[in-house]
Nucleic acid binder design. Structure first.
Lengths: 200, 200
DNA sequence: CAATTTATCGAACGGTGTTTGATTATTGCC
DNA sequence: GGCAATAATCAAACACCGTTCGATAAATTG
């Protein structure tokens, strides 16, 4: 019975994204499929394809919510404090959000485009933004360094933070005994950032 | 026509693992499926399940070849040189191998267990070994530090190296302009390792 | 040569992403 | 208000996927 008009297309889109989050939170990242999401919101698969390009689009839009959440938190952290402090906050924001919703972040980490299609630009820009925020702070921290140096350090540092959060969420960091990811982040910040700030 | 006995089960296993590598190298990580691998080696799907537990097992055994290759290279690098040099070699071994066969390493990075089953122990041990090799060198580098300190630094450093190689292989590191992963690795080693070695 | 084992196949089951055509509710127009 | 155009919705189909299973035939054993 078409067009019951109980929901606008935008509402359906929001419902579907909520459903992705619910399904992932309760049954893990592998529980996502077009049919399951459709069933969860009371529509058929075909309807989903009216609102999303494909499953990649659906998942990326859901993941973008998390990335945006992190970006907003990191933008907020930028206010006022000294750059080294701000960057530490950003790194811990990442780990803290990942720990709050591990399954949903696993979906972010684990997702890959079907068939090897490229990641769309609108999503790429969102993840690049996270690098850019770090870069800004590094430029504040060392205004006399060449911009390329800050760019390199931002990519190095944020890739490292990413690696630590990634392994933390999949429980690959605590090997024999206890190595908490928080300690690893602090170690990284102390030594890498400390050394970078001091040099030159 | 059963039991043609042209290949022993071990030979079939090796053929299948070769086929995984070939398919991944030529058509990307998404090209792996039980049917395609079976077709490639001239057997049927059912036969694969006589040799492997499931597709996860097949992929993990293929991935273990790469992990072992890296482990062997890193063990070889450990001979003789000063620890800081050895660790630098290890990091660059990782990136260099990843660059030599990007698609195959993408399969390592991208693979996740179906249904959320745990990664089997035999594979876990292989990846843990990579951390352990770094830890040994850090202990050589700073024999007076508590072992826990070396363990933490090893996990921090190798997670970071992993993050950089991961993003490098998926082209997410060169954003605007040119940030080569090699430079990022060197930056990480210089500042993190340099600072860690000096402190205390 | 007969009996047992076992390598191998082919088909089946339920799930997946995606496309398409039919159906029907809503909208715009006279 | 009624009719035509539009747009939402569904159901079914296609090709692929991982996995299981029974039948079959070759090799091995006695």
């Amino acid at each position: 019975m078409p067009r019951r008009s109980e929901h606008s297309l935008d509402e359906i889109r929001a419902l579907a994204l909520d459903a992705v989050e619910d399904l992932v939170a309760s049954h893990g990242p592998t529980a996502i499929s077009a049919r399951k999401v459709a069933a969860q919101i009371g529509y058929t698969v075909g309807m989903l394809y009216h609102v999303f390009d494909n499953v990649d689009d659906l998942v990326l839009q859901a993941n973008a919510r998390l990335v945006d959440q992190l970006a907003r938190a990191n933008e907020a952290a930028a206010a006022g404090n000294r750059p080294q402090r701000v960057i530490a906050r950003m790194a811990h924001n990442y780990l803290s959000l990942a720990r709050q919703a591990p399954a949903r972040w696993q979906l972010v980490f684990v997702h890959t485009m079907r068939d090897g299609r490229p990641v769309p630009d609108w999503y790429r820009q969102r993840t690049d933004r996270l690098f850019a925020l770090v870069e800004e702070q590094l430029q504040r921290l060392a205004p006399r360094r060449r911009p390329a140096a800050a760019a390199l350090a931002a990519r190095t540092l944020w890739s490292s933070v990413h690696g630590i959060c990634l392994l933390a969420v999949s429980d690959k960091l605590d090997i024999g005994g206890s190595t908490s990811a928080e300690k690893a982040l602090d170690s990284l910040l102390t030594h890498y950032l400390g050394s970078w700030a001091q040099s030159r």
